[in-house]
Every structure is written in structure tokens, then in C-alpha cells.
């Protein structure tokens, strides 16, 4: 049954992606002006020949359904259009940028979940203790701070006051030819500030949420049962309670993934992180729509994938959802 659930989930995900492609198509057609000009984008340098080529490529002289069909079959073949500025296919452009974004987003996700839950669990043991107070203040503040501003403040702090972490880019130029281990640590070193900047909002939210959920769970009957059989406090907290308390965090973390990508967009811009967000920003400034819409497509695909993974891990973590076999 898990297999069929998985297949259904994937099929639905593909359907959503089809929706994204159609949306992209509509966006270009709905934008004011000649779609060929919109596609060519990039102010200046559009000549009649180029526009004619675009019209032919996208079938812009044909009826709308045909145009949609052409667009769809192009996307299915991995053709998301050309970036005239970079003079590269959009798909190639994005595939070089997607890795750093995934690295940043996943690191931030893991950091925020692990640290947030840890703080929340500790705070839940003393609902009126100082850590509990700190967690709720921190969560309120974390929610209100603009993520790009946190990044900028950290850049100022770490560039001039404590220059221990790099504040720009993903790799050092001088280590371009170093061995893989040195490169790994170099990237990790560059990752620290962007990942923390991005993680901090969610970290605060997860700390507050896991504190509440943990307090809920700690009052439940099965925790009393665990204590009644003589389980140690660590076992009660981290084995019996945490696994149950983590379920709502998992749900929220799944739902937040899209917002995390939105945040990554800003963080990449602040730290010059060579990811899709940076690419989207550069392309938008140049009115390069095929690239921007390509980023939208890939970002949506990441969210869909994250949702499928969340669903699967939820079923793994909560046996009640697995159903009887």
C-alpha cells in the first residue's frame, strides 16, 4: 500500500507541475505587450530577426491551444527557452544554480528543525522557566525581523567586527584547485552565515511550536504509562515524547518549505550565494522572463518534492496513517 500511495502522490505532484507550466504560459500571454518582446526580454538589442525567430519557435502566430501544446512539449523535452543575455539555454543555466540553492535550503531546514526542537524540548520541561520565556520572545522577534536585514546585519558584524566567517559567495578563489576535503570545508565555511540567517526565523518558530507540542504530549496518558514502567527521564523525553511531539513540526516544516525558498531568494542576494534566487534576481532586473519562469518552475518542483517527502516521512513517523495491511 505504501507503494501505491507513493505512486498516487507522485502522479498528483506531476499534475501540479503541469499546472505550473500552464501558469507560466498564461503569465507570458497575460503580460501587457507583444509576447515575443516579453520572451526576448532584456532591454535593448532586440532586432526584428530575433523576434521572428521567437515567433516561429513558440508558434506565436498559431491559435492559443497550439501555442500551449508547443510550450508544453518543449518543457517536457527539457527546453525552457533561451537566455539571450547569458546566451545559454535556461535549463542549463538553472541546473548549474540549483545545487547551491538546495544546499542552502536543506542546511537551513535541518538547522532550524534540530536546534528549534532541541530548544523547545528543553523549554517544555519548565513551562515557566527562563528558557521558555526566551523561546517565546525569540519566536516573536524572529517572526518580525526581515530576513534580508538579519543577513545584512550579520554581514556588517562578521565583515568588520569578527571576521571569522566569509560574507560573500560560496567558494574562495584561492582554493579553486584544492583537494575535495579542503573544498568541502571551504563551502561549509561560506555556508555558515547564509544558512543561519535563513534558519533563524524558522528555528524560532519551531522552538515555540515544539515547546507547545511537547507540553501537550508530556501531559498525555502514554507518558504516564512510560513513567509507570520505570523509564528514565531522558527516555521519557527523547524516546516516548519527542517522536510524538515531532509530528506537528514535520507538518509545519513541510508547509514552510515554499517560504524557505522565498527566504533563500533574499538571502542569496545578500550573501551573493550563486543559487537560483540570485539568478532569478539578476534575470528579473534584465527582464529575462524565460529564466525567471524557469526558476519558478524549478522552485515549484522543489516544493512538490519536499511535500512528497514530508508525506512519506509522516507516514513513517506515525503508524496510525499507515493503515492495516
Amino acid at each position: 500500500m505504501t507503494a501505491s500511495f507513493f505512486i498516487r502522490r507522485i502522479a498528483y505532484g506531476l499534475l501540479l507541475m503541469l499546472g505550473v507550466v500552464i501558469l507560466n504560459f498564461l503569465l507570458i500571454r497575460l503580460a501587457p505587450g507583444d509576447p515575443a518582446v516579453v520572451i526576448a526580454g532584456e532591454m535593448g538589442g532586440i532586432d526584428a530577426q530575433m523576434l521572428a525567430a521567437i515567433r516561429a519557435d513558440y508558434g506565436l502566430d498559431k491559435p492559443l491551444p497550439t501555442q500551449l501544446w508547443i510550450y508544453l512539449s518543449n518543457v517536457v523535452q527539457g527546453n525552457l527557452g533561451e537566455s539571450f543575455f547569458f546566451n545559454q539555454p535556461v535549463a542549463t543555466l538553472i541546473s548549474a544554480r540549483i545545487g547551491p540553492t538546495i544546499l542552502l535550503v536543506l542546511t537551513a531546514q535541518v538547522l532550524s528543525i534540530v536546534i528549534g526542537m532541541f530548544l523547545g524540548v528543553i523549554a517544555a520541561r519548565k513551562p515557566n522557566g527562563p528558557l521558555s520565556g526566551f523561546v517565546s520572545v525569540f519566536a516573536t522577534i524572529g517572526y518580525a525581523v526581515p530576513v534580508f536585514w538579519t543577513g545584512i546585519m550579520l554581514v556588517i558584524l562578521f565583515a568588520s567586527v569578527f571576521p571569522i566567517f566569509p560574507v560573500e559567495g560560496m567558494r574562495s578563489v584561492r582554493l579553486r584547485d584544492a583537494g575535495p576535503i579542503a573544498q568541502f570545508f571551504d563551502v561549509a565555511h561560506h555556508l555558515v552565515l547564509p544558512a543561519f540567517t535563513l534558519a533563524i526565523i524558522y528555528l524560532a518558530q519551531y522552538a515555540r511550536l515544539s515547546r507547545a507540542s511537547m507540553m501537550d504530549v508530556l501531559g498525555s496518558d502514554y507518558i504516564r504509562t512510560a513513567r509507570a514502567k520505570g523509564a528514565t527521564e531522558q527516555s521519557v523525553l527523547f524516546k516516548h515524547a519527542l517522536r510524538n511531539a515531532a509530528l506537528p513540526i514535520l507538518t509545519v516544516a513541510g508547509l514552510q518549505f515554499g517560504n524557505l525558498i522565498s527566504g533563500a531568494l533574499l538571502v542569496e542576494t545578500v550573501f551573493n550565494w550563486p543559487g537560483m534566487g540570485r539568478l532569478a534576481f539578476d534575470s528579473i532586473l534584465r527582464r529575462n522572463y524565460p529564466t525567471v519562469l524557469g526558476v519558478l518552475f524549478f522552485a515549484a518542483a522543489m516544493v512538490v518534492a519536499a511535500n512528497i517527502l514530508t508525506d512519506l516521512s509522516y507516514r513513517w513517523a506515525d503508524p496510525r496513517l499507515r493503515g492495516r495491511e
Binding site: 505550473v20 503569465l27 515554499g258 517560504n259 531568494l265 532569478a280 525567471v292 519558478l296 515549484a300
Partner: peptide, 21 residues
């Protein structure tokens, strides 16, 4: 609704804002 939740909000907003000036 689920379809709209798949689109990262800020990115989508960026696209809308630039397309419609």
C-alpha cells in the same frame, strides 16, 4: 489552493510585479 501553495510566494510575487510593472 494546493496549487498556489506550491509556488514560492516571494518568487511568484516578483514575477507578477515585473510582468505587470
Amino acid at each position: 489552493t494546493e496549487f498556489f501553495q506550491v509556488l514560492p510566494a516571494l518568487l511568484f510575487a516578483m514575477v507578477l510585479v515585473t510582468l505587470f510593472s
